[in-house]
């Protein structure tokens, strides 16, 4: 029984960054903006979180800084998609590439190496703070989306933007706000990776987590609670994978290790193949 509880707890830990990112993705996508930049937003958050936590000696400040860094990059994303009307998918991937190039560049500038930030001590790291915060965030997003004025705006912006404009509300402003907040949340997700799950930022450490968050969003049909469950599924795969790795230490089974590491990616692929796009997809998703 203990081991089941262990697995669940570790799944929750592993799912935490995904929860942040997925809530960020949910915000953007419900407002009609495809945000494939989540991966890059997380990466810059992971770097900023670890770097600031190291320099300031406080994970909380690092966490906040990560949100700000995510917001900054999200503003760039918004500028190219909303102001210059670029293709959201391509711009999203461009932002990912930018983040992938910028993080080692900054790492080198601040810490003289490109590979990783210096390792954080225990008191510079989180134990479970972000997880609790993520719980709160999921519940609030869920309520906010259904019960608040701006939640209604965001929903209509993603479904029928001209209806929103015609009701006298500026669609662009709503989308801008959604995009910026999605950057903040994704930044939080990245910081969770580098200051809670790991003890430093390392090169390309997000390893597809941003895309898994999007897969969870598709699986959860763009609704907060089911999306969070989808993230948990990925967390579960991850923690099982890690557990199996721990048990397969013998030389005979070393060859299996690599395959087991692919577990989360394969699960994501099956999720994508199984979750056929439904009527709950925001109708105006991806339109300019």
């Amino acid at each position: 029984m203990d081991s089941v509880l262990d697995i669940i707890l570790s799944s929750i830990r592993m799912a935490t960054p995904l929860w942040f990112a997925a809530m960020g993705g949910l915000l953007a996508e419900r407002s009609g903006v495809v945000n494939l930049a989540l991966e890059g937003l997380m990466l810059i958050g992971a770097f900023t979180g670890a770097a600031v936590a190291y320099n300031m000696g406080s994970p909380v400040i690092g966490f906040i800084a990560a949100g700000a860094a995510g917001a900054l990059l999200a503003i760039l994303f918004g500028f190219f998609t909303l102001t210059l009307k670029g293709d959201q998918v391509v711009i999203g991937m461009g932002i990912n590439l930018l983040s992938a190039g910028l993080t080692p560049f900054l790492n080198k500038y601040f810490f003289h190496v490109t590979s990783s930030t210096p390792s954080l001590s225990i008191d510079q790291r989180f134990v479970y703070g972000p997880t609790l915060f993520a719980f709160g965030l999921i519940v609030s997003v869920s309520f906010w989306l259904r019960r608040s004025v701006s939640g209604l705006w965001v929903r209509v912006a993603g479904e029928h933007p001209t209806a929103l404009a015609s009701a006298g509300i500026r669609v662009k402003r709503v989308r801008w706000a959604a995009v910026i907040f999605s950057g903040v949340f994704a930044g939080f997700g990245g910081a969770t990776m580098s200051t809670m799950l790991a003890s430093a930022f390392s090169r390309q450490m997000t390893a597809g987590a941003g895309f898994m968050a999007i897969a969870a969003l598709i699986l959860g049909r763009w609704a907060p609670l089911p999306t969070a469950l989808g993230c948990f599924l990925f967390g579960l795969t991850d923690s099982i994978q890690i557990r199996l790795q721990g048990q397969l230490t013998g030389a005979d089974s070393a060859w299996l290790l690599q395959l087991i590491q692919l577990g989360p990616y394969i699960v994501t692929l099956f999720v994508l193949a199984g979750a056929i796009r439904s009527s709950s997809t925001p109708k105006a998703l991806g339109e300019n």
Binding site: K85, G86, D87, L97, A100, G101, L102, F105, T114
Partner: peptide, 21 residues
Amino acid sequence: WITRDFAQILQAVLILFMSCA
């Protein structure tokens, strides 16, 4: 201070500028 990653930044910037309407 500048590493090969810099090429990636340049690529990203070009992608951004090329794909906006």
